[in-house]
Write a protein that binds this DNA or RNA. Structure first.
Lengths: 214, 214, 214, 214
DNA sequence: AATGAATGAGCCTTCATTCAT
DNA sequence: GATGAATGAAGGCTCATTCAT
């Protein structure tokens, strides 16, 4: 109760992430957050000034925790196709990872729907680096004279296919049925998106395994 | 006070959509909604039972207003490619329609992040019919022996590319810059997505502009 | 809907009695009353001005219905003991009658707890006549030179014993247990009170049946 | 603001008693109670959970304040008649106590008319102990082989006579006239009820004033 | 005469915040 | 530094009442 002083702040951040994600900003009650974090009712105001202060720090913290993985890297000379497949799989793993980030991603969704200052910060800090990696991979796969617009839209096509499974989950689940949706494996989805994308880019119509040299 | 009697309900629906979209369910106050709709404080409970009732109807109404167009139809014999291009363009027009939409789409985002009963109802009522049309188009473009899973994932790839521009708008805008993003025309995006998709399906390397060879 | 016009008023009165008795004045909702009476929501205000108007009329109506029985009468020359037994039994029948008056009596209780104008009116109109009968019976059973105070207090002793079973029912039920209380028959209680009273007055310690001439 | 901190709860209890008694549960407004108690609007929910919680505690408190005197005790060997006289007088003193009671009793009336959880609790906590004392006294005055029913009904006859003066006060006052009623002294009533009861039980024709013979 | 759609005052309750310790 | 008892602003909802028909 005295040595773990800094821990309270962190516990608050973690718990708040979960609860904000689950219920949204205004539906989340600071009392509930504090109780769940085994902290005092006044802790939020003490550590973060007010509820909004806690929220902003929470969003930052969530991103830091969720996207702190360094952008993927490959040995130079790795084939662009391999890198694209890896990138897509990594992204889906992040988005659909059922262990930790359940609420992390939900929180992000909210930010998208109602961007706060946190949104811009996060984009620059965590998303742009990933985006740049994707762009560089796609540049290898596209003709050298491709326009920036085309390049960006292609990247968006890749990202759009991936985030769909996160963003539209409830709808997709309803459309194909609970059972069918439950059977989707991350690897299966990743293979589909990568295959679809590579085919679109005029590379390989063959499934990953059939590739001669990896 | 007598001719516009039914209009109160409608005005409430419209105004609530705007406010729910802007602030979210719990942050939106029925008092504010009523004031904005020039309706009585009790109107919400009178017409919709309670706040949640208003919300559900609002979400439905938003969809109805935005997606009530009957699923697109083509003369029999129309080439599948033409239909797909039309479908994608129509979907983007809806999603990015600058006249009505602002809050309409935002509201949907919220529903995705935190699905309520409204979500299921809308999916069945408005989304599934569209989805079925897309599926039938894709069936023409895919091999006859394609699995349902593959068919569905392909549809999701199409839809994912489209909704990205709605869902991730703030991020996309930030990533490519305000100016570049503003220059994107619906037709340009639609052409990209259609071309990307048809290429992925191994069809057409032709439109949007009879590309020589890739 | 047009011929039964007067009936609505009456139905309202009856239903309101039941509901006012059950829930009290402010907890009773005019909507519920109207629905139960199959009358319009505005009927109360139409027929009685407002909710309080309905209440006052309801209390009057309830008493008229419940105590309209003429005060008991006996052939001249009937023994005072017989008359007292009859009086007590009649009073208990009224108070505990499980068929009609359940709510009638409850309503009266409320009036006692919080006397309105209706209370005085009722006392004069319905209660005093009964009280006078009791007094006249007791005068026969008490010495001629009894004071008025003594006479009144004796009457109150009789009445008090009777109303106890109505007024303190929940407590009595709890004290002796649900089962035992349920086994009390009106006749048994009446016999006890009459016997108790007559004994107190120095007449007969014998149970009613053992009386030589009836 | 610091020494009297506990007093808020108590002040609330006292004030609520007065107001609940005066207006009934639903007509009493927590705002009014808080204002009268010089407490915050949220105090009720803070201390008692909700309005009903306050009500229950209030009823208990009223009883505790009014009946908290330990059940009367007498030196062993005291004559049962003496004890009965004492018991009756004590009970009437409580019921008619002009210092505190006004609303206390009214509140009880309401509970009887519309029993809540509070009723049961009070019966067990405050009323039953008194009732047991009365029963034990009566057992001394009645034949050894008396049935439980008879014993209980006899107790009810005693209690009924007493509570009448509380419960039916408005009616009694009206029946005998304001003046006459005002002249009733507690001692006078107590003497009457005790005398009446003892006579009924076949004991004592002695007190209150060594009556020669009846 | 009688209705029922619509109103607005106001009630109970919640909840972020504060302040004395 | 950290707490938790207490606050007051405001929110959702109810309900008696009205008014045009």
């Amino acid at each position: 109760m005295h040595a773990q002083t800094e821990d309270v702040r962190t516990r608050l951040l973690e718990t708040a992430g979960e609860i904000f994600a689950e219920r949204g900003f205004s539906a989340a009650k600071v009392r509930d957050i504090c109780k769940a974090a085994e902290a005092n009712v006044a802790s939020v105001n003490y550590y973060f000034g007010d509820k909004m202060g806690l929220y902003i720090e929470t969003v930052k913290h969530a991103h830091a925790a969720n996207f702190s993985d360094p952008p993927p890297q490959w040995p130079s000379g790795t084939a662009a196709e391999i890198k694209l497949r890896g990138f897509i799989r990594g992204m889906l793993m992040h988005l659909l990872n059922p262990t930790r980030p359940a609420w992390n991603a939900k929180l992000m969704m909210r930010e998208m729907a109602e961007p706060t200052d946190a949104c811009k910060q996060i984009t620059e800090q965590y998303i742009r680096p990933m985006f740049c990696v994707l762009i560089s991979i796609l540049r290898e796969l596209l003709p050298a004279d491709v326009t920036d617009d085309k390049l960006h839209m292609t990247a968006f096509s890749v990202v759009g296919q991936c985030v769909f499974y996160r963003v539209q989950e409830p709808v997709a689940r309803e459309l194909v049925g609970e059972e069918a949706y439950a059977s989707y494996a991350v690897d299966q989805i990743a293979a589909h998106i990568a295959g679809f994308t590579l085919a679109a880019l005029g590379h390989s119509l063959s499934p990953p395994a059939a590739r001669p040299a990896l």
